[in-house]
Design a protein around this nucleic acid. Structure first.
Lengths: 380, 380
DNA sequence: TTCTTCTGTGAATCCGTGA
DNA sequence: CTCACGGATTCACAGAAGA
C-alpha cells in the first residue's frame, strides 16, 4: 500500500486531519478501506464498476478471478460474483462511515438495482434516489431501445437511526429559484476541456463524471472541512471538486495511470476562498431564544395581551414566560395548538402583538430577531 | 376465481381472443396467473405494492395531515417477505409472457431496487430503466431530503434471447421532435377529472397512475390487437388505455371495490378507430416536431380534425402523433407539404384547429407554447 | 360572465435537542 | 436508552368561492 501526498492549502486549524486524508491510496478498494479507522469519514461517493461482460478482471472478495463462461450459468455466476463484490466493498465502506454520515452510489440499470438491494440488505437507509438527466446522452444507435439518457444515484444514511445527517436544504433551494431541489438533476456529460485526454487525444478514463454533478452532491450533503471518501477514485473528480469546495478527500484507486492523472489534476485545483463557501442556512440554524428571554429583554411584559393574526383568540403573558387563556396556562406553542384544537403549533408565528410604531399586528417572532441581534453583539 | 366480463367492441377478426381476455380476474395475483396458459401475453405492465415503510404521521406546514398510503396490501413484514412475494409473482408472470414479449414494472426507491435485482436473477433482460418525472410531485414538507419527484420503470424482455420484441422506434421518434425518445418522461400525476373519486369525493385508489403514462408505454412497446396483462390491476388504468388504443387486456385484482370501479371505467371507454392507431414505420427525415407533447398534455386528442387556415384540407390526428389524410399517414409537416404539393411545410403554422373559446381557427403552434410553459416550469 | 383569490391534496420510508 | 417539547417546514394544479 502506498500513498500519494498532494499539495494542498492549509485546512482550518480546528480540524487537523490524519495523514491519509487528501491522499490517494493505491490498491484494492476493500483492502484499502480496511486500513481506515471506524466512523472516520463524513461522506462517501462511490462510482463502482458495473459492466460484467466487458470488465473481465472482476474479482471475488478473495481475489480469485471469475471464470468467464458464455452459457446461462454464466449469468448467475456473474451476478453472484458482482453481488459478492458489492457486498464486500459496501460493508467495508459502511464501517468507516460516521454514524451521521451519508453515502452516494451512482450506477446505471446494469448494476444499480443489485447495488440498491444490497445496500438495503446491509442496513443502509435510503434517503433519495436521484436521477442525473444527461443533456447530451449517447444516442441508441440501433433504434431498438429508448436513448439511455440518465444515470441513477442512491443517497443513503448508515442506518435508519442516522437522522442527523447533513443536508443543506436552504442552500439547494436558493440555488433552484427558491423552490426546493427535486430528485431529478440536469447536467451535460463530461467532455470538452474538462475531459482528461492522453497525449494521443484519447480519453484517460471511460466514465469520467462531470464536476458539476459532484459539486451538487458535495454542496447538498457535506460541509466545508468534511472528509469525503471515494473508493473508486478513477481520475479524481471527487477529489478535485472536494478540494475546490474546501472539503477533504480520501481516494482509493488501483490503476497507476488513473492515480497519475488524478494527482496532476488535483494539484492544479485552487481552493475557493472560505467566504465563497458559506452555506445558506434558514431558521433552523439560528440560536434558540426562549420566550422568557423576550421578557428579560423588556420587549414583552407580563400582563401584555397577545392575539392571532385574525384576532380570534387572545392570551395574556405571564411573568414566567407562559401564556394564560380561559383559566389555562401553557407555553406559547401549546396554547396556540390548544386554542386552534391542533396537535402542534409554532407559537412564534401564531401569536401577534399590537406594534405601537407601525400600528399593525406583528408576530412575536419579529421580537426574537431583536434578541438574537443583541446576543450576537454581546457574544462577539 | 371469478371473472368480470366487460362490454367491448369487436377485435379484428384475425385475432380471436380467449374468453379470459378483456376480463378482470378476481383473486390473488399468483393464483390467477397460474390459470393462464404459457407464452400467451404480449406485454405485462405491473404496478406492484411499493412496500412503503412509513414511520408515523406526517403533517404539512399548515398542520394538515398527509393522507398516507397505509393500505393493508402495502404491508410486508420484512425485506425477505417482500422479496419472496416479488419472486413469486415475477416467476408466474414470466411463464405466461411470450418469448418475444416485454414486461414493464413501476416502482420507487422503496422497492424498485429489490424488484430489479430479482428480475435479473430470474433471467429477465433489462432493455431500459425509464424515469417518470412528475411535473407536480408532493413536496418534501420537512425540508430534510430532495423532493421525491420521479418514479422508475424497468422495461425488460423475458430473457437475453428475446430480440424480436416490439418497439415502435419510429413512432416514438416522430412523436418527439423527430429525435429519438429518451429514457426520462415528463407527465403530471393523476388528478383532476381523470382521478376516480367515490361518492364522498375521496379517491378510490391511493396510487392511480396517469393514462398518459400508460399510453406511452403501450404506444411504444405493443401493437394493436396485442394482449396486455396487468397483474395489479387496481382501478384499471392499463385496461382503459389498452381498450382505447385497440389492445386487449387481462386484469388481475383482489379487491372488489377496485374491480367495480375499473369495470365501470373501462365500459365507458371508447376504442379509437383503427385508422387512428396506425403506427408510423420506416426511415424519415423531417424537420423537428414535438406534436405528441400536445397529445400527452391533453391539448390535442387523437381523432381530432385539423385544417389549414382557409379550410381547403382536413387531416385527422393519430394516437401516435402523426396525421392521416386520404389514406396516407405522416407527420404534421410532411402532411402539410403533401396536400399543398410542396417540398416542405411548417406544420405548426399550417395546421389549425377550431378553438371553442375564441370560435376562431387557431394554428396548432399556439398550443405548443402552452406545453413549453408547462415544461419550463418543471425544469425540463 | 370573467378574473382573482382561496382551499385542498398527491406512492412520503420527512426533527433535533436536552433531560 | 426513552421521553418531552420547542418550533421548523410545501409545489403544482384543480376546483370552489368571491369579486
Amino acid at each position: 500500500m502506498s500513498r500519494v501526498h498532494l499539495a494542498r492549502s492549509a485546512k482550518p486549524a480546528v480540524t487537523a486531519v490524519p495523514s491519509y486524508v487528501n491522499t490517494i491510496m493505491k490498491g484494492d478498494c476493500v483492502a484499502a478501506l480496511d486500513k481506515l479507522p471506524d466512523n472516520s469519514v463524513d461522506m462517501i461517493f462511490a462510482d463502482p464498476p458495473y459492466n460484467l461482460q466487458l470488465q473481465g478482471d472482476l474479482q471475488r472478495p478473495d481475489q480469485s478471478k471469475v471464470d468467464a463462461v458464455d452459457d446461462h450459468w454464466d449469468q448467475f455466476a456473474s451476478f453472484q460474483a458482482y453481488d459478492d463484490f458489492t457486498r464486500a466493498w459496501l460493508l467495508a465502506a459502511r464501517r468507516v462511515l460516521k454514524p451521521n454520515g451519508t453515502i452516494w452510489v451512482i450506477g446505471s440499470y446494469h448494476n444499480i438495482f443489485r447495488v440498491g438491494a444490497k445496500m438495503q440488505d446491509l442496513g443502509f437507509w435510503i434517503l433519495n434516489d436521484v436521477i442525473w438527466r444527461k443533456t447530451n446522452p449517447m444516442p441508441n444507435f440501433r433504434g431498438r431501445r429508448f436513448a439511455n439518457a440518465h444515470e441513477t444515484m442512491i443517497w443513503a444514511t448508515k442506518d435508519q437511526k442516522g437522522k442527523g445527517y447533513t443536508f443543506n436544504y436552504e442552500s439547494m433551494k436558493a440555488a433552484n429559484d427558491d423552490v426546493q431541489m427535486r430528485s431529478d438533476w440536469l447536467f451535460p456529460i463530461c467532455n470538452g476541456g474538462e475531459r482528461l485526454k492522453g497525449e494521443d487525444g484519447s480519453k484517460v478514463h471511460p466514465t469520467q463524471k462531470p464536476e458539476a454533478l459532484l459539486a451538487r452532491v458535495l454542496m447538498s450533503a457535506s460541509k466545508p472541512g468534511d472528509v469525503i471518501l471515494d473508493p473508486f477514485f478513477g481520475t479524481g473528480t471527487t477529489g478535485a471538486v472536494a478540494k475546490r469546495l474546501g472539503r477533504n478527500f480520501i481516494g482509493i484507486e488501483r490503476e497507476q495511470e488513473y492515480i497519475d492523472a488524478a494527482t496532476a489534476r488535483i494539484n492544479s485545483v485552487k481552493e475557493l476562498p472560505a467566504h465563497d463557501l458559506k452555506i445558506v442556512t434558514g431558521k433552523r440554524a439560528e440560536p434558540r431564544v426562549a420566550f422568557s428571554a423576550l421578557i428579560d429583554a423588556g420587549l414583552v411584559k407580563s400582563g401584555m395581551k397577545l392575539t392571532d393574526s385574525k384576532r380570534r383568540w387572545t392570551a395574556t403573558v405571564q411573568a414566567d414566560g407562559s401564556l394564560s387563556h380561559g383559566g389555562v396556562q401553557a407555553s406559547i406553542h401549546k396554547m396556540g395548538a390548544t386554542v386552534q384544537e391542533l396537535d402542534a403549533c409554532n407559537g412564534w408565528t401564531f401569536w401577534h402583538f399590537d406594534c405601537p410604531k407601525s400600528k399593525k399586528l406583528m408576530p412575536i417572532d419579529s421580537l426574537r430577531q431583536i434578541v438574537r441581534d443583541q446576543m450576537s453583539k454581546a457574544g462577539a
